[in-house]
Amino acid sequence: MPSLETYKGTYLWEYIPSLAAALTFAILFLLLTIVHTHKTLKLQTWYTIPFITGGISESMGYASRAIATYHTGSLVPFLLQAIFLLLPPCLFAGTLYMVYSRIVRAVHGERFSIVSPRWCTRIFVAGDLLCLNIQSTGAGFLPKPKPKLVQIGNAIIITGLVLQVVVFTGFMWCCVLFHRKFRADVAATRRAGEIPWESVLYMLYGTSVVISIRNVFRLVEFITGHGGYLFLNEWPVYVFDGVLMLIVMLVFYIWYPPQLQLDGTESMIELSGEDRASAEDGQGK
């Protein structure tokens, strides 16, 4: 029978993790990751690799929770589930940033974006990486036996989550401004295009709102501390984190943006931050 055990005299868990719930979510995330991987390989949409990595992280996080059911006093599964469940939104967001950049390029709407495509991916991904590093560092303090170190870890994670909310809010505002300006231009010029740019933007809005709700939940969870309701009960983790991240993966799969696929040269531009003109000059030589 599973029971609460201590690690160096300290309880890592406030409850015994549900084996059934953890296995169910681990399998669901694994299945979604597999279908996303298949679509990425089929369409060669390599910019979705961070998204797939986030799905792998979710699956590993819930698998670690399943293992922890019978090892509540073990540090490794506790630490793995804490880290792997904190990081996926940052990885999902990395792909969303690149999707926005590709929308702007695909419709030649660079002048309507408050952040140019050349800088968009770099700025927001850099912010994401900073959030990743901050949150993973804070998670490393959680299993420490000293209460002060746990408080420091919570404070570090809260800082990372606040920054993540700020970065994501900036990204959504960037999308909204571009949407308004470009839609007004389309209406004025009555030009038509084959790329469903507006539906892709709506997909970005939907997934961004869901990720933001999850980030706010985690922020409240760590602000209220280990004695708060969200830490003392398991169901909020599944409702306000697991289910929401499943929705993100489902929505992205259903409204997948293959029309935004760029050629190999442009894909390298996106990763390296070089502008299109530089790449074209290099090809002409």
Rank of each mutant, 00 (worst) to 15 (best):
N133M: 15
R65F: 08
P145R: 11
A279R: 07
V35Y: 12
L201F: 04
A277S: 13
D281V: 09
F182T: 03
V35K: 12
I254H: 03
S59H: 06
T121I: 09
G284L: 09
T207V: 15
L30F: 14
L4P: 07
F182Y: 15
F217I: 03
I123Q: 03
K181T: 08
L23C: 07
A106E: 06
Y253S: 08
L12F: 07
L142Q: 11
D128H: 00
R190N: 14
K39C: 05
C174R: 00
L260E: 01
T45D: 06
M203T: 13
V239C: 12
L230F: 14
K8F: 09
Y97A: 04
R180D: 02
Q44H: 15
I83H: 00
D263H: 12
V162Y: 05
G264S: 09
E266H: 10
F141H: 10
L177I: 11
H179Q: 12
Q135G: 05
G55P: 05
P50L: 04
Q135P: 05
P88I: 05
D263I: 08
G227T: 09
L43T: 12
R183Q: 13
H226F: 14
P88E: 04
C131H: 00
T6L: 10
M268G: 06
Q261Y: 06
G284M: 10
E5S: 15
A26G: 09
T159N: 00
S212R: 00
I156W: 02
M249T: 12
P147K: 08
E194T: 14
F78S: 04
Y7E: 02
A155I: 02
F25R: 04
G170A: 10
A20E: 12
L219H: 05
I195Y: 00
D128P: 00
H108F: 11
R111F: 01
S136M: 12
E274S: 11
T48H: 11
S267F: 01
T40K: 01
K285H: 11
A26R: 06
G140W: 08
P143C: 08
C90D: 04
D263S: 06
Y202N: 07
P89Y: 04
I114K: 10
I83S: 01
T10V: 15
S136L: 07
W235A: 13
K144D: 14
L75H: 06
S101T: 14
R118T: 11
I83T: 01
R276V: 13
Q135A: 06
R105T: 13
S199E: 15
Q81F: 10
G264C: 03
V107N: 02
V76H: 00
I157N: 02
L12W: 03
F29P: 08
A66V: 08
Y11P: 04
F222S: 02
E194G: 14
Q44E: 15
I27T: 10
N133F: 15
V251I: 14
A66K: 07
C131K: 02
G54K: 07
V167N: 10
F222R: 03
L230V: 00
V107W: 04
